Amino acid sequence: MPGLISTYGPGDRVMLPRGVYRPQGDTLLLREALERERVGNGTTVLDVGTGSGFLALAAARRGAWVTAVDRTRRSVLATRLNAALAGLRVEAVRGDLLAPAVGRRFDLILSNPPYVPAPDAGPPPRGPARAWDAGHDGRLIIDRLCDGAAGLLRPGGALLLVHSALCGVPATLERLERAGLPAEVTDRRTVPFGPVLASRRRWLLDRGLIAPGADTEELVIIRAERVG
C-alpha cells in the first residue's frame, strides 16, 4: 500500500495510503484528551472510525488493548500496517460503526466520526468524503454513536468524541444524557475552515449554520461517562 509518511511528533509517524483520512486538527485535539485519561496496561480501548490508526496507536503505546474499527477496507489495512511498523498490538477490523464490538465491553471509546454538514442527506456511497460528510445537520453518525456507546462501556468507562460545533453541541449532550451517559465539553478549539467547509460557505450560510463572513469553526471534545 504505497502512501505518504506523515510525522506528528516523536514516535507519531503514520503511513497514509491514498484515500485514508489524514490526522488533522480534530484528531490531534482528541489525542490531547486521550493523554489525560488513565490508560495503561490492560485498559481496553475501542477506536471507532480509526482512519490511519493514529489514535489507536497512541493508546497502544501506553499499553492498552486496542480494537480499531473502520468501514473502509483501505483504512483497516492502513491501521494494520501502521501498527506493524510501530511494533504495536492493535486489532483492526472492518465494520459499520459499533457493530463489530457488540457483546464486548471497553474502558474507553474514542471517535473522530464524520460530522461535516453536507448538501446530500445521506452518507456518500464511496470516495474520501465518507470520512467527513454526515448529512444535512452533520449528525448521521454522531447520533448513532450517542445511542450505542453506553452498551459497550464498562461502569466507569468513558466516551471521548470530537466534532464541530456546527453539528450542535447541546444536541450531543442531551442525546448522551438520555442514553445514560452524562457528558460535558472538556475542550474547545477554534480552527480556520478547511477546503471542504470553505467550498460550502454559501450553502452553510443559507442554512443558518454560519454567520456572514465566518471563516472559522469551533471543534469540541465531549467526554461522557457511564456511571452505573
Rank of each mutant, 00 (worst) to 15 (best):
M1S: 13
M1A: 07
S6Y: 01
T7H: 07
T7S: 00
Y8F: 06
G9L: 02
P10K: 07
G11A: 12
R13K: 12
R13C: 03
G19L: 01
V20Q: 03
Y21H: 09
P23S: 10
G25H: 09
D26W: 01
E32L: 11
A33Q: 01
G40H: 05
T43S: 12
T44E: 14
T44A: 04
L46F: 00
G51F: 09
G51D: 00
G51Q: 12
G51P: 03
S52H: 01
L55E: 09
A59M: 09
R62A: 06
G63T: 05
G63E: 07
A64H: 00
A68G: 00
A68Q: 00
V69P: 15
R71P: 02
T79L: 05
L81Y: 12
N82Q: 13
A84W: 06
V90E: 06
A92M: 09
R94F: 14
L98V: 08
A99R: 14
A99V: 13
P100E: 15
V102A: 03
V102K: 02
R105S: 15
F106E: 13
L108D: 10
I109H: 01
P113K: 13
A121F: 11
R126A: 05
A129G: 09
R130Q: 08
W132P: 02
H136R: 12
R139L: 11
I142G: 11
D143H: 13
L145N: 01
L145M: 04
A149Y: 14
A150E: 14
A150K: 00
P155K: 02
G156D: 12
G156R: 04
L159N: 01
L161E: 11
V162F: 11
V162H: 08
H163K: 08
S164P: 12
L166P: 12
V169R: 15
P170Y: 15
L173S: 08
E174H: 04
R178F: 10
G180W: 09
P182D: 14
R189P: 15
R189K: 15
T190F: 07
V191Q: 03
P192C: 01
P192H: 12
G194P: 02
V196P: 03
V196Y: 12
D206E: 06
L209I: 00
I210E: 08
G213P: 03
A214R: 11
D215C: 12
T216V: 09
E217W: 10
L219V: 02
I222R: 00
G228F: 06
G228K: 02
